[in-house]
């Protein structure tokens, strides 16, 4: 496999500091399916990386695109929105609203220059502890590959520009 120079850089950086990049991930989980699936992963002692923090919402439809944007602006390297499978929603069709918003939001993120893959919508049922584990693990690894949220770097540059010209 051909390596991108980013990977070279990342690896070089890793070798230099001896530390790999640890992504920070916010996972919104609906109360009835995904949060239950996350709990089941726990009950089943399925091991996964520590890089994510779960925020419980009653329904994935409660997750406002502004919450996702907020998380990115505050430095989240990835955001997951996990809900009930289509037809399973505890609130009948909440997840149908979610999937529309997330699709549109991904289009927006791309325009903002963020890789839309940093936002992941996935359906995890109450019996899918393993799927929760795999979803989290794969996502953490993918984000690790992708590197830090570029907003952080941009903010640093912006601050530098302000420091130079701001007064």
């Amino acid at each position: 496999m051909k390596m991108t120079s980013t990977q070279h850089e990342t690896q070089a950086a890793t070798a230099a500091t001896g530390e790999q990049f640890e992504p920070k991930i916010i996972a919104f989980c609906c109360n009835w399916c995904s949060y239950a699936g996350a709990d089941l992963a726990g009950v089943s002692r399925l091991q996964m990386p520590t890089n994510f923090l779960v925020l419980r919402a009653m329904c994935s439809a409660r997750v406002d695109p502004e919450h996702v944007l907020r998380a990115f602006s505050k430095g989240a390297d990835g955001v997951m929105v996990l809900g009930c499978h289509p037809a399973d929603c505890h609130y009948i069709g909440g997840n149908y609203r979610t999937r529309r918003r997330i699709a549109l939001l991904k289009m927006l993120l791309e325009q903002y220059g963020l890789d839309p893959e940093r936002l992941k919508l996935e359906w995890v049922s109450a019996s899918e502890g393993v799927k929760f584990q795999n979803t989290v693990t794969d996502f953490v690894e993918m984000i690790r590959e992708m590197g830090p949220n570029p907003l952080i770097e941009a903010e640093k540059q912006h601050k530098a520009e302000r420091a130079k010209y701001g007064h």
Partner: peptide, 15 residues
């Protein structure tokens, strides 16, 4: 119980 400001407070605290 899940007001915007409450959710945002949790997001900010998480990060």
């Amino acid at each position: 119980g899940f007001k915007n400001e409450q959710i945002i407070a949790a997001i900010d605290a998480a990060l």
